[in-house]
Nucleic acid binder design. Structure first.
Lengths: 256, 256
DNA sequence: CGTCGAGTTGAGACTTGTCAATACCGGTGG
DNA sequence: CCACCGGTATTGACAAGTCTCAACTCGACG
């Protein structure tokens, strides 16, 4: 029986991704909920505008610079967060260094759907990011007081479960081309909904992040990108900024 | 660019798994909530005993024989369910026949965490099963009326998200041995909690089901079982009933 | 201009998937 | 009670795709 084979996982080659000191760079910043960038899309949109001052008292905003860690896998859960701007990734590390990026967080995403007492993933900023944080007890009180907020959270949790189901299928049964195509379409759609250019994708994360998300190596990610580029489906303005030149074909490749 | 390669997926060899007629075998049966087998573990445990008559009026029990379908992928969602006894599987089919088994449902499991209007998976009975069903509006009313029920559902949804995260990591970054080991430990633990023998696993599903769940082919599943058997980690009383002979070693193989 | 990290590309190894034959189990019918 | 039959599981040989290892390119930064 072969021992665990550290297949993939960017850190399996000896580079530690999570630098301990990075946690310290959390900075509290001020911000009013009324002018919040994600006021309309986040779960707290259910709270009436005239009562936002209460929210502001309970919550705090945190600014993270790229690569810094918001919460560390294994730490006790004390807060939940909503991403206000930027991009973050949820990361899990296996004992032997293999890495799994559970997902990329975009503005409006809620961080904190878990029944566990400790964090099951680290959360790291991919780009400069701002997050809104609430203590667990605060959230409990808000949920009791604002049923719509509670319902929003439940709805969003269900949406997360739907999304998880799609990723599960992708990882279990799809080829690299399908996985990457679906990933690009998904991200492009979300970024477009948030105000980005249609049929464009920003990929501020590294190829290792993408690979660790899709269950592939960086080389396979790179090769797959190259094939899609060569086919004319993708156009690279930059390795981190891609135009989807043939969305229908891409959807086809993604398995619809 | 190679076209989609139907790797794995039991149905990719031409056998249709979902037989249309199977839906018809749903049978409504009577049952009192007070004597329900999962009274203490299902979400509805939050509803006081003296008010169970209301539940009984809203809900209905359904008996499914092995292989029959409860809901079909793509159908409109009108009900939620709780598995009372037996085992069911959640299945998704890709256009070319590849199959993904999103999960196996055990007594107490809730079926219906989704933000979508249509079912994203089919649900099929693996063994003779009994389920409890409620219409979507009924559930909404129950959630409004019983905050503890609502909280239970939310908690269970969060637990599902935690579980999904583990599967995601397994599919993205783990070897066949690790996937199968973790699967057996997980299922064994759940079955033990439900009254099964410790360190024993019942596997009423086929190897194809297991493979389609773990992102492997039936051959790889079988070979992996054989290796674990040969190592003395597993003992086969039957292809569908396994004893875990060396749980510590199995945990080690599963990556803890 | 040199260095460093990230990304791309190439060649070969290895695991898993594919194809195919055989063994096994349960149910049916003689 | 036993032989037969269909579906399932196991095992083997081979092929294919991805991973591994390594060289090279590119761009940012000092």
């Amino acid at each position: 029986m072969s021992s665990a084979r550290p297949t993939g996982g960017a850190t399996s080659r000896g580079i530690a991704f999570s630098r301990p000191a990075d946690c310290a760079q959390r900075q509290r910043v001020h911000g009013s909920c009324a002018g919040c960038e994600v006021r309309d899309i986040a779960a707290c949109s259910a709270i009436p505008s005239r009562e936002l001052h209460e929210l502001e008292q309970l919550g705090g905003k945190i600014r993270l610079s790229p690569g810094t860690t918001l919460v560390r896998e294994g730490d006790a859960r004390t807060e939940v967060h909503t991403l206000v701007s930027g991009m973050a990734r949820q990361v899990r590390l296996l004992p032997d260094g293999r890495r799994h990026v559970a997902g990329f967080l975009l503005p409006g995403d809620f961080i904190g759907f878990s029944a566990a007492s400790h964090h099951r993933h680290s959360v790291e900023a991919v780009t400069e990011s701002v997050l809104c944080s609430f203590s667990l007890p605060s959230v409990r009180r808000l949920r009791e007081r604002y049923p719509d907020f509670d319902a929003n959270l439940f709805e969003q949790a269900c949406g997360e479960l739907d999304k998880a189901g799609s990723y599960l299928t992708a990882l279990a049964r799809m080829t690299p081309v399908e996985r990457l195509s679906a990933f690009l379409l998904h991200l492009s759609g979300r970024q477009h909904a948030l105000g980005g250019r249609e049929n464009h994708v920003d990929l501020p994360m590294t190829r290792a992040d993408i690979g660790d998300h899709l269950g592939l190596t960086i080389e396979t990610v790179s090769r797959t990108f190259s094939r899609l580029k060569q086919e004319g489906v993708l156009y690279f303005e930059h390795p981190h900024h891609i135009e989807l030149r043939d969305p229908p074909r891409l959807r086809e490749l993604a398995g619809l």
